[in-house]
């Protein structure tokens, strides 16, 4: 997944969003002294390589009433973890889904799935849905609710990084 200096300039120019103009890629091209076609082709190539996950609109789920979330964690048998993790990630109420190492004895869980809902009782229902999906492949599980944001900074690409 290699990107070059021009790709990086396109990333820097669009990481806070696309311009709301009839020809947004031409606007970006104008900023960077590139052709519209090159910007579109490079964005498409980055999308193919997975550098860009997708080009889309992200609704503010909080504003739309999806205000509760919890980090659910699961101890899933290693030989089923990849298959089941993929199924959990595909659920429409899960926003992040990762396999991570257990840290024994402090932490027996290897699958992390962030669950969103209108309120905590909905989050708990979704959690039961995941438990049913994992079935016998899962031993212990837990859910961690955040009680306070202690720090939040955007993950912004440093210029020339």
């Amino acid at each position: 997944m290699t990107i070059d200096a021009t790709d990086r300039r396109i990333i820097n120019a669009t990481q806070s969003g696309l311009p709301l103009a009839p020809a947004p890629y031409a606007v970006v091209a104008g900023w960077l002294g590139l052709s519209e076609r090159e910007v579109i082709e490079r964005l498409a190539a980055m999308q193919d390589k997975g550098v860009i996950r997708r080009i889309a609109l992200a609704p503010n789920h909080y504003a739309l009433g999806v205000t509760a979330n919890g980090m659910s964690v699961w101890d899933v048998a290693d030989d089923h973890a990849e298959t089941l993790g993929a199924e959990v990630g595909a659920l429409d109420f899960v926003s992040h889904c990762y396999l991570r190492p257990r840290v024994l004895p402090d932490w027996p869980y290897n699958l992390f799935a962030m669950i969103h809902g209108q309120d905590r009782s909905e989050v708990e229902l979704k959690r039961q849905e995941i438990a049913a999906l994992l079935g016998g492949a899962c031993g212990a599980s837990d859910i961690l609710y955040s009680t306070r944001i202690l720090k939040k900074t955007g993950l912004r690409l440093r210029e020339g990084a």
Binding site: S16, L57, A58
Partner: peptide
């Protein structure tokens, strides 16, 4: 109502 509109890297 929107948090982001554009490429997600």
């Amino acid at each position: 109502a929107i948090t982001r509109f554009g490429p997600f890297f």
